[in-house]
Nucleic acid binder design. Structure first.
Lengths: 157, 157
DNA sequence: GCGGGTCTTGCATTTTTATACAAAGTGTGC
DNA sequence: GCACACTTTGTATAAAAATGCAAGACCCGC
């Protein structure tokens, strides 16, 4: 049964680092689910699992771990609503990002962004219908700007 | 120069969906950076970029996009500190996760978790040195528990 | 039961990504 | 300049992941 298998996958990836879909397939086998890597690939996609590099990787071998992307999702779910609602326009200039908002909501948006504590963001200034986001290094500007764009339109993450 | 190239990569992935490292290599070429997929693979790893499935995928072709994992990172950086500091132990029972904390900090931790608004979490109850986290479905228990474990020890995301 | 949908899977293969290894580049002290 | 250590890259290849296709499973309504 596909459903219980995917449940097993969630449980497995939560319990230990898994380095490949092949490995996952083997682990599933030990639990009575006989599937191929192809099926695991589809499951991974459906569950929305993503492969993240392991930070403390000692260096040798493939060091990945599949994780549920819920972090990003739920993170976004709070700020996301504010941004989706208030951000009308996003413009970049070197290390500044200019957001336009409906009149009166600039301060609100600015403090919401402050609150989020993104580490590329040094600070924000909220006017009436404009928010200035100061980015720590120009190289991050496109990334942060894109993030605003994403949160404005897409589903979180 | 490696540094400017990686900068260009950050900018590229922020500006459009990119489906493979090969594609990225071609785009870099148009900007005067002549590199192979191998080098891109290394850059991607160093920058910590991850490949996420595109939600609104129309179905055909590989639909991925490289993103900076800053979402998860910054998200975690706030709650993370609280959890790293306060969570002493994590136990699971069906749809409940029991967290032990230093005496007196239960309520604090509980409200921090509430605040985070994880969507698998229905609610929390904070006692003196214990927090009960109620998960919406037992199938998410391992994932959420692991997340606590991760935030307790690892670097965010 | 039978025909026509939809869903799930494996097989075989392609596509994509990672890496071992060697070579070239860079810097430092002598 | 030369020797040495360290970094960065490409080549070739291995490893891992995605997918076209066909087969089987399942579910209806008739």
């Amino acid at each position: 049964m596909k459903n219980t298998r995917q449940r097993a996958i969630l449980s497995l990836v939560a319990s230990r680092p898994i380095h490949s879909q092949e490995e996952l397939a083997h682990l599933l086998e030990t639990q009575g689910y006989e599937v191929t890597q192809a099926t695991v690939s589809r499951d991974v996609k459906e569950l929305g699992l993503i492969k993240v590099p392991l930070k403390n990787g000692n260096g040798a071998g493939t060091h990945f771990k599949y994780v549920e992307p819920a972090f990003g999702k739920t993170y976004a779910s709070r700020l996301h609503r504010v941004i989706a609602e208030l951000v009308r326009d996003v413009k970049v200039s070197v290390n500044l990002i200019v957001l336009r908002t409906p009149p009166g909501s600039g301060m609100l948006l600015a403090s919401a962004i402050d609150e989020a504590g993104w580490n590329e963001v040094v600070g924000t200034i909220g006017g009436d219908d404009t928010v200035l986001v100061v980015v720590s290094d120009p190289k991050f500007s496109p990334v942060v700007a894109q993030r605003f764009e994403d949160m404005r339109s897409e589903d979180p993450l």
